[in-house]
Design a protein around this nucleic acid. Structure first.
Lengths: 204, 204
DNA sequence: CCACTTATTCAACGCTTGTAGAATTCAACG
DNA sequence: CGTTGAATTCTACAAGCGTTGAATAAGTGG
């Protein structure tokens, strides 16, 4: 026997290792956050040597940034919702938001982004830069007043919903059917978009 | 000179060290989260040897639990709001919530609780056990329908508000005057308390 | 078929972490 | 005033961390 014991050297066949490292990283950052997730653990999950992670990404922070790239464009979603029917935008946004989160495809990335936004400066900045600016841009385009304030209010309800339903898994919100949740939250979003949000006018 | 160089041994005077360790721990867990916060760092911030932290608290997790004890009783706050005037409970809750968060006294503890709830199982459980159960209890007491679902909806908006205004500091929400923010959010809370939250009735 | 680049592992480094044990000093109480 | 117990520090350890450098194997282009 020459070598059923291999010690270094390239593997035969195609090379999808980089992708599986990214997947493992996404999963790890998702579950634990930045610091607790370890390169060694990620490498192990990907069935690979830790040094290979360094080879591909250089250092932990770069790996984090690449793993956490935002998988959806909130700007486009919001614009489409507003274009379709401005007085039902709340419903559409709620439904779309839940649809994206409920789909296993994007879930890990989104979970990680929220989790990391809370503790990691880099992720927090990324949130502001992509999500919030996207929301504001869409609102401005449709001429709503105080787009930035309304944008942050929308973000507050959506982030809170994500935390309650997906991160903390508060029951019964966590396992309620998607349309029920959408119905409960839609009026809130609609008011933040086009309703009255100032003082001295408690009429909704 | 016998000993301006002291190496171990009790310090003269009163002993408030335990408290200052707790304060430093609260601050550290608050800013960073569980894992990134280190016993050595906490000890240094408290001007004390790391081993003294162990002496008082035994291990890191116990220190975490003791440092993060919830500083307010949501049950009482909600009950009082509902008792005063059920159809203005939303306003009262929003105002009280912002008042507590804006006060520097509770801020660190609350920040830490939210930050840790996202990553730490123990904190997440504590959240469910104290906050959510408190909300549900108050709602049940006043005979609202679906108290648990409404409770989670309320929690979702309040947590989202905390994240947006205090953790991510999204402008202009972060520096808007307290009454303005309260006015913007109050109707949402009011609807979650006493409004219609089911499907097939989009009227608010 | 040879040179080059790329993928991969191994072994090791310097550092930081949580924690344990022994030693020292003070306070409290009889 | 002597004894006991609590407060405090020092030193040390084993484990885990991110990262590095060299070695090896496979693909790729001339």
């Amino acid at each position: 026997m020459v070598s059923s014991q291999r010690r270094g050297g390239r593997r035969p066949g195609a090379t999808d290792t980089r992708e599986s490292i990214l997947a493992a990283a996404r999963e790890a950052f998702t579950r634990a956050g930045y610091r607790p997730a370890t390169i060694r653990g990620i490498a192990a999950a990907a069935g690979v040597d830790p040094a290979l992670v360094m080879h591909f990404f250089g250092n932990k922070e770069t790996l984090f940034r690449e793993a956490m790239m935002l998988p959806v464009e909130p700007d486009a979603v919001l614009s489409r919702a507003l274009a379709t029917s401005p007085d039902r935008a709340g419903e559409v946004i709620a439904a779309t938001f839940l649809e994206i989160w409920d789909s296993a495809a994007h879930r890990d990335s989104l979970l990680g982004l929220v989790r990391a936004s809370v503790t990691e400066q880099a992720a927090s900045d990324m949130f502001r830069a992509t999500i919030l600016d996207g929301i504001e841009h869409a609102l401005t385009e449709f001429g709503v007043s105080q787009p930035r304030l309304r944008g942050t209010l929308i973000a507050s309800q959506l982030m809170g919903l994500a935390m309650a339903r997906y991160i903390l898994a508060l029951e019964p919100l966590a396992s309620a059917p998607r349309p029920d949740v959408a119905a409960a939250v839609a009026p809130t979003l609609q008011r933040y978009i086009s309703g009255d949000i100032t003082r001295e006018s408690p009429r909704d």
